[in-house]
Amino acid sequence: MHPDPSQLRARPTPEQVPSLFLELDQMLDEFTRMPIRAEFRFDPDMPAVIRVEFLAERGPGLIWYIGRELLHRGLTAMSGSGDVRMWPTLPGQQPSSWLLLESQEVEALFELPTAQLGEWLDATYRIASAETELDGLNWDGFLIELLGGPGTPSA
């Protein structure tokens, strides 16, 4: 179930944009789709990165950190390189984009709806513009969280 679209149109508070829950299709092969739910989370303290959790029916979800700009550009054009890429589906099809995630352990292709994601990303840009998203970023804290390490970096 998609969130109430009126929540996305309301002016968000400066502190937070509500998480976006989307129903995606994971492509298991050329003809087989598996529906999966994903939560997109924006943190105003790290606005350049969107936390995406792919929610499993059983067991823990899988979390990826994806650049906000990559997601935004991927709504309309090829975006990203390496482990994360996103691009729009062919013209004439439903408005959606492909999201490809690759690592040593996994390769997954998802089709996701662009309208809801685009509205939600626009709300995040009202909180932190693209020009200011790296201002005040705690790089050490970000890397510790990204790498899952509890320690303090040495100078």
Rank of each mutant, 00 (worst) to 15 (best):
P113Q: 12
L90D: 10
D83Y: 04
I63M: 15
R73C: 03
S79R: 02
M46V: 14
T114A: 12
P113K: 07
L109A: 13
D122S: 15
A56K: 11
W120S: 01
L112I: 08
V49W: 04
Y65H: 15
W64F: 12
E57S: 13
W120Y: 05
M86Y: 00
T114M: 04
T114W: 02
V106Y: 08
I63G: 09
I66S: 04
E102I: 13
E107I: 12
H72M: 04
S81W: 06
L71D: 00
Q104D: 15
P95C: 03
P47R: 01
R68L: 04
E102F: 06
F42T: 01
E107D: 10
S97D: 00
W64D: 06
A108H: 08
S103G: 15
A108S: 15
V106H: 11
V84F: 02
V106S: 13
L70H: 03
S97C: 10
W87T: 03
G67V: 06
S103Q: 08
L99P: 01
R73Y: 02
Q116T: 13
L70G: 02
L75S: 05
E53T: 15
H72R: 07
R58V: 14
Q116H: 15
W120F: 03
P113A: 13
G82H: 05
G118Y: 00
S79W: 00
E119F: 06
R73W: 01
L100Q: 12
L75T: 04
E53Q: 14
R58H: 13
T76H: 11
H72S: 05
I50T: 04
P88M: 05
M78R: 14
T76W: 02
F110R: 03
G80M: 07
G82M: 09
P88A: 05
I66A: 03
Q93H: 07
S103K: 05
E53S: 09
P44V: 11
L62K: 07
F110S: 01
A48Y: 05
R73H: 07
F54C: 09
R58L: 12
I66E: 01
P88D: 02
I66P: 00
W120M: 04
S96G: 12
L55A: 11
R85D: 03
G61A: 09
E111A: 14
M78N: 13
P44F: 08
L62E: 11
L100Y: 11
G92F: 04
Q94I: 14
F110Y: 13
R85L: 13
D43C: 11
Y65C: 12
R51V: 10
Q94C: 07
G80C: 06
A48N: 10
E69K: 04
M78T: 15
L112A: 10
L101W: 05
E69C: 00
G61T: 07
G74Q: 03
L55N: 08
L71G: 01
D43A: 09
G74W: 01
E105L: 13
W98K: 09
I66N: 01
E107Y: 08
S79L: 06
D122C: 09
L101D: 08
L55K: 12
R51G: 06
W120D: 01
P95E: 11
L100R: 13
L117E: 03
